[in-house]
């Protein structure tokens, strides 16, 4: 039969009654006991396993970077993040997420959703306590020290796939900060059969100075015309923005044709 693996059965033989398995365990004993060998186990509280940099441990918050966009609270499957006003240390208050770590399942979706690199999964994994209430943190209680904070990544900003946009204005209505302005494009009005012209097509224009990268507009867009993309340059720089948009549109066209 092709594609079928049926390896030959190993013969047991007279040695198989006890000696073959005993030989393997004896070899392990030799390896672990003599010639500088040591057993495979880690002595846990003294020795610890090497963790990779992106290990998903206990959550930590960098308070300075938090923009209060609520992306994390929206994406959390267990609703363990709860937004509240809290002191950031110098007397001023800020809208930041509080954490119920006992509900957290360490999925890391909030870290991915955070636009400002304010959330970070640390290498701490020994989170056991006697009381579940000890694992409820106000924002400043689960804040990271500045030296533990991860490298800041560029903010993602909403980008428009013009080809998908219908100008419905859902993003404008969803935006909490008046970042989005719907502007008409001249000359796009369709001519009706009776000779009158319909409304001109509108597209959103973003004022990136005001944007907090909360992605509410992206969620609101019914036609997937928006996407969050990181921008290294100042997004409102007029010299950069049109080029980027052109690239996007070309890509979308290629996808459609493919």
């Amino acid at each position: 039969m092709a594609d079928v693996l049926t390896s030959k059965k190993k013969r047991v033989g007279l040695l198989g009654y006890a000696f073959k398995p005993m030989w393997i365990s004896l070899r392990t004993l030799m390896r672990t006991s003599f010639a500088g060998g040591k057993p495979n186990t880690l002595l846990y509280p003294e020795e610890k396993i090497d963790l990779p940099d992106d290990f998903r441990g206990e959550l930590g918050l960098v308070m300075d970077r938090c923009v209060g966009c609520e992306s994390c609270a929206r994406v959390c499957p267990n609703k363990c993040l709860d937004m509240m006003e809290d002191d950031i240390g110098d007397g001023t208050t800020k809208w930041m997420p509080a954490l119920d770590l006992a509900q957290c399942m360490f999925c890391g979706l909030c870290v991915e959703a955070c636009p400002s690199t304010a959330l970070h999964m640390t290498n701490r994994y020994e989170t056991a306590t006697q009381d579940r209430n000890e694992k409820i943190f106000r924002p400043h209680e689960w804040a990271l020290k500045p030296e533990d904070a991860p490298d800041q990544k560029p903010f993602p900003y909403p980008e428009l796939y013009e080809i998908n946009c219908t100008g419905c204005g859902a993003c404008d209505r969803a935006c909490p900060h008046e970042v989005i302005d719907m502007v008409s494009i001249p000359g796009t009005a369709k001519k009706r059969p009776n000779g009158t012209f319909g409304p001109e097509k509108k597209i959103p224009i973003f004022d990136y100075e005001l944007c907090v990268s909360c992605a509410l507009c992206v969620d609101a867009c019914p036609f997937d015309a928006l996407d969050m993309l990181p921008r290294s340059t100042t997004a409102s720089d007029p010299a950069v923005q049109p080029q980027l948009q052109n690239v996007k549109v070309e890509q979308t066209k290629q996808e459609v044709s493919a």
């Binding site: 609703k79 709860d82 509080a98 579940r132 209430n133 409820i136 943190f137």
Partner: peptide, 13 residues
């Protein structure tokens, strides 16, 4: 409904 943490009362569940 998803329960809310009682923040007034020291954050107890």
């Amino acid at each position: 409904d998803h329960w809310k943490i009682d923040w007034e009362n020291k954050g107890k569940r």
